[in-house]
Simulated scan of single mutants.
Amino acid sequence: MKYTTLPNTDIRVSRICLGTMTWGRQNTESEGQAQMDYALDQGVNFFDTAELYPVPAHKDRYAVTEKIIGNWFRKNGQRQNIVLASKIAGPAPFTAFIRTDGFKPSAIRDAVEGSLRRLQTDYIDLYQLHWPERSTNYFGQRGFSPDPNEAWSDNIHEVLRTLQTLVRDGKIREVGLSNETPWGVMRFLEEANAHAELPRMITIQNPYSLLNRLFEVGLSEISHRSQMGLLAYSPLGFGTLSGKYLGGQKPEKARVTLFPNYNRYSNSKAVEATGAYAEIAQGHGLTLAQMALAFVNSRPFLTSNIIGATTLDQLRENIGSIHIELSPEVFSEIEEVHKLIPNPAP
């Protein structure tokens, strides 16, 4: 395994992070625990979860994933060997069963306390805002369209002040963003720069893959100049970049087969690009998944690549991508496809 640190901290994390959002929905508890056992054995010490998981969200499965992780900690006593990240869900129609008061101080405190109970731990290493309260373009929206009925008013100072209290109390160590835009990132950094006592957002968890490199447009410069690391999610685009959906295939129990509304990586241009990337991988003796993950692993702004799997075979291949170094020829061929079909999946 390869390691780095969370930006501006001494917290050492693996460059591969174990994603968990299928546990309790597509995966049973025993399967999730087997994944944690295998990942830890391979040197993965960074796990990412959220109160929202498993996904798709449903009130009958609320926070089941955190409970699975908590039971694993209780069973094997490995908490001190894991850097643990979780998230508070933002307001949305599909999270109304969780809460309806957004990121108010009481909501953040209650969310953290709930996660701590379920995870059976005294602290969370990295606590993230899963997506913004304000109306903006996330979850498959390419462009921003103002909402004339938006009720949000700027409360970012208050959010950071609440998080500061939780850091002071030892309940969380560091804070980060997720599904955030350049404006949002800079607004949080502006508050932290103006008020030295406030915690600074050190990571941003956004989608990044061969099919979606929009992070490079704006956010990568912020990452470089402000030392904010990317935690890349969906590096295989819901499994699309494994090639398993090519030719119109619908593998049994696969994510897009089970949940066809998760189709942002399945439009005609994304399928065309996936086919072109598959040809590059085949021409260089690689699987498409290996090449796609190794590409993400190579990015200078990456802190950790969040991989998810529903089988141990998938997990082995995904974690193994850390040992693959792509040649200049592969990078060059990838860029040629990207020039022709840039960012087909928003």
Rank of each mutant, 00 (worst) to 15 (best):
T9R: 08
D10T: 11
D10N: 15
I11K: 09
R12P: 01
R15K: 15
R15T: 14
G19N: 05
M21S: 09
M21Y: 13
M21W: 15
T22L: 01
W23M: 15
W23G: 00
G24K: 02
G24C: 05
Q26V: 01
N27S: 14
T28F: 09
E29L: 00
E31I: 00
Q33A: 01
A34M: 03
A34E: 14
A34N: 08
Q35N: 10
Q35F: 05
M36K: 06
D37Y: 00
A39L: 05
L40K: 10
L40P: 01
D41G: 14
D41C: 01
D41M: 06
V44A: 13
V44H: 13
N45L: 09
F46D: 07
D48A: 10
T49Q: 09
T49C: 07
A50H: 10
E51K: 06
Y53L: 05
P54V: 11
V55C: 09
P56H: 11
P56Q: 10
P56E: 09
H58A: 15
H58Q: 12
A63Q: 12
K67A: 12
I68K: 02
G70K: 09
W72L: 03
W72M: 03
R74H: 04
K75T: 14
R79K: 10
R79N: 05
Q80F: 03
N81T: 09
V83C: 04
L84I: 11
A85P: 05
A85K: 08
A85V: 05
